[in-house]
């Protein structure tokens, strides 16, 4: 089938690309744009490995036709924080929230969407928020620890600097 032109923004960069109607977003990200941080696990919407942000919402790039992203703002793991590690990435590394690492980009993108909506989630809210992502290594405990730590750190960074002590 004839290709069509897709225009969208990926990690802040304007993209213009000819894509086939049946190409999924993850295929375009990985195979055309060389953004291989986004992983393909099940390729049928079950595992969450391919989670990216489309217009700020966590969605599955394996279940999204690339052409559905006409004009959209897309963020992948590569664009989460371009110049230094995002607090989530740092926390996943420090807490051991990642073993083989295959599910990690999806977990981090979903966690980032969760924290944008709910900056101080309870342990239960973290578990519910990440229920669409599967990890076959960690048993989830360290992943939830990492998200808790990142949430605290991001809140500290957001909080206004304490007023200078009076003497």
């Amino acid at each position: 089938m004839a290709k069509k032109i897709l225009r969208c923004t990926v990690n802040g960069r304007q993209i213009e690309l000819a894509v086939a109607p049946n190409q999924t977003l993850v295929q375009v990200l990985r195979d055309e744009l060389n953004l291989t941080g986004t992983k393909v696990g099940c390729d049928m919407g079950t595992c969450g490995c391919c989670t990216v942000h489309i217009n700020g919402k966590a969605k599955l790039s394996c279940l999204t036709l690339a052409l559905e992203c006409q004009g959209a703002q897309i963020t992948t793991i590569e664009g989460l924080n371009q110049y230094e590690l995002h607090p989530l990435q740092k926390a996943f590394a420090e807490k051991g929230g990642s073993q083989c690492g295959f599910c990690t980009p999806g977990f981090i993108m979903k966690s980032a969407a969760l924290l944008a909506e709910n900056p101080a989630p309870s342990r239960e809210e973290i578990a519910a928020g990440l229920s669409g992502n599967l990890c076959r290594c960690t048993g989830y405990v360290k992943i939830y620890d990492a998200v808790e730590q990142a949430a605290q750190e991001m809140q500290r960074a957001e909080a206004p600097a304490p007023a200078p002590a009076r003497t």
Partner: peptide, 9 residues
């Protein structure tokens, strides 16, 4: 129904 990622779509 599904996961949050699915429900977003």
């Amino acid at each position: 129904m599904g996961s949050r990622q699915i429900r977003n779509v």
